[in-house]
Every structure is written in C-alpha cells, then in structure tokens.
Computed example of a mutant assay.
Amino acid sequence: MAQQERAIRTRKIILEAAAATFDEHGYESTTIAEILERAEVTKGALYFHFPSKGDLARGVLAAAVTTEGVRPHALKLQELADTLLLLAYRLPREPMLSAALRIAVDPQARRQFGTAWPDWAELMAGFLREAKARGEVLAHTDEEEVGRMIVSTWTGVRVVTEGLPGTYDLPGEIALLLRLLLAAVATPAVLPRLDISAARAAHLYDDMPARRAEVAESAPRGISG
C-alpha cells in the first residue's frame, strides 16, 4: 500500500511539474529536462509513468476536466454554474488548468493531442440532462447543443479578455456569461433561485479544502492484512 501511495504521489508531482512548465513555455518549447528539474525526480521515474512528452500533455488535458470542489445541490443548474465559476477562479491560480487551455488553443498541439473540450461539453450536457429531468430547464432545450455553446463561449471569454485593454476579472466575466446563457434555458421558476455571482466563485474556492476533506473521509478504506 505504501509503495502504491508513493507511486501515485510521484505521478502527481511529475504531472504538476509538466503542467507548470507547459504553462510557462508552451508544449513545443518545453523539454523533458526542464520537467525533471522542476519535479526533482529521476528520468526513469518520469518515463515509468509517462513514456513521452506527449503522454504528459494528454495527462494534463485529462486532469483538467474536473468538478472538484463542487458540492451537490438541490438544483442541477446550480452545480453547472458552480463548476464554471470555480473553474474561472482556479484557472489563473492552478497551472494544471491553465496549461490545459494553453495546449488546447495551440493549433499544433491541438492537432497532436486534441483537447478536453469534448469532455467538457459532455459534462455540461450531462448537467443539463439531469436538470431537464428535474424540470429546471425549458422543454425545447437541446442539451448537447447548449453544452457545446457553454464550452465554446467560456473558452472564448477566457481567450478574448486576455487580449482586451484594461483588466478583466474572469469570474466576473463568466458570471455575466452565465446570466445570459441560463436566462435562455432555465425555467422562470428556477432562474431567480440560481446564485451566479462572481462572489460565489471565491466562496467555492475557499471551501475547497473542506470539500476535499469530506470526500476523502467518505472514500472507501483500504483493507489491511
């Protein structure tokens, strides 16, 4: 068990080092030597977990599709909004997420590895399907189409605001986006009950350690002996 835990920890260290380096230099300019130096592991350990730099990029993309920190809610649309607000707050603070976006918007890297966008679109569609089953969204809503539009517009907001003059708060911009999008799909009874404020993003982020502890506590225990 201890050996398995060490292997999991080593893999995490390597992946985080790769993400930070990709985020700083881009995929093409990053070298394995730079990742090794940052991770402080041997070349053998790195190649045991990730046979190539491309596998590291794929690992970063996979790790970026996450609902970590989002608590279950009576409204499925609130969980959808919380996922996107929290992502907006975490992105500038966590290289794993910003590196995945940098890989996705790099045409050369995208041709090699694809993106996590289809997974994000399906995640959003899943929220919408459950929300529709609960009567939270309008009956004419096409969950797959709206899921794609959510991912497309979220990414567009992130990329475009980086190039605009002035300073833009990403959670604030995403809150504005959600107000516009959810007004088109949420039922009139549900829409006023949704909290899609930028302040909620900060609250969700501050709550993440407690949420992680709860998830860890509820996880099945290993059987010893």
Rank of each mutant, 00 (worst) to 15 (best):
Ala62Ile: 01
Ala62His: 10
Ala63Gln: 08
Ala63Val: 13
Ala63Trp: 11
Ala64Thr: 02
Ala64Cys: 11
Ala64Asn: 14
Val65Ile: 15
Val65Cys: 08
Val65Ser: 08
Thr67Cys: 12
Glu68Thr: 04
Gly69Met: 11
Val70Ile: 15
Val70Leu: 02
Val70Gly: 01
Val70Cys: 03
Arg71Tyr: 00
Pro72Thr: 14
Pro72Lys: 15
Pro72Phe: 02
Pro72Ile: 05
His73Asn: 15
His73Ile: 02
His73Trp: 02
His73Glu: 15
Ala74Gln: 15
Leu75Phe: 08
Leu75Asn: 10
Leu75Ala: 07
Leu77Asn: 05
Leu77Met: 12
Glu79Val: 00
Glu79Asn: 01
Leu80Pro: 04
Leu80Glu: 03
Leu80Phe: 13
Leu80Val: 03
Leu80Thr: 05
Leu80His: 04
Ala81Thr: 05
Ala81Trp: 03
Asp82Glu: 08
Asp82Cys: 07
Thr83Glu: 04
Thr83Cys: 13
Thr83Pro: 05
Leu84Arg: 07
Leu84His: 08
Leu84Gln: 07
Leu84Met: 12
Leu85Val: 10
Leu85Gln: 01
Leu86Lys: 03
Leu86Gln: 06
Leu86Thr: 08
Leu86His: 08
Leu87Pro: 00
Leu87Ile: 03
Leu87Ser: 13
Ala88Tyr: 04
Tyr89Leu: 04
Tyr89Lys: 09
Tyr89Ser: 08
Tyr89Asn: 05
Arg90Pro: 00
Arg90Lys: 14
Arg90Leu: 09
Pro92Tyr: 13
Pro92Lys: 07
Pro92Cys: 09
Pro92Val: 07
Arg93Cys: 04
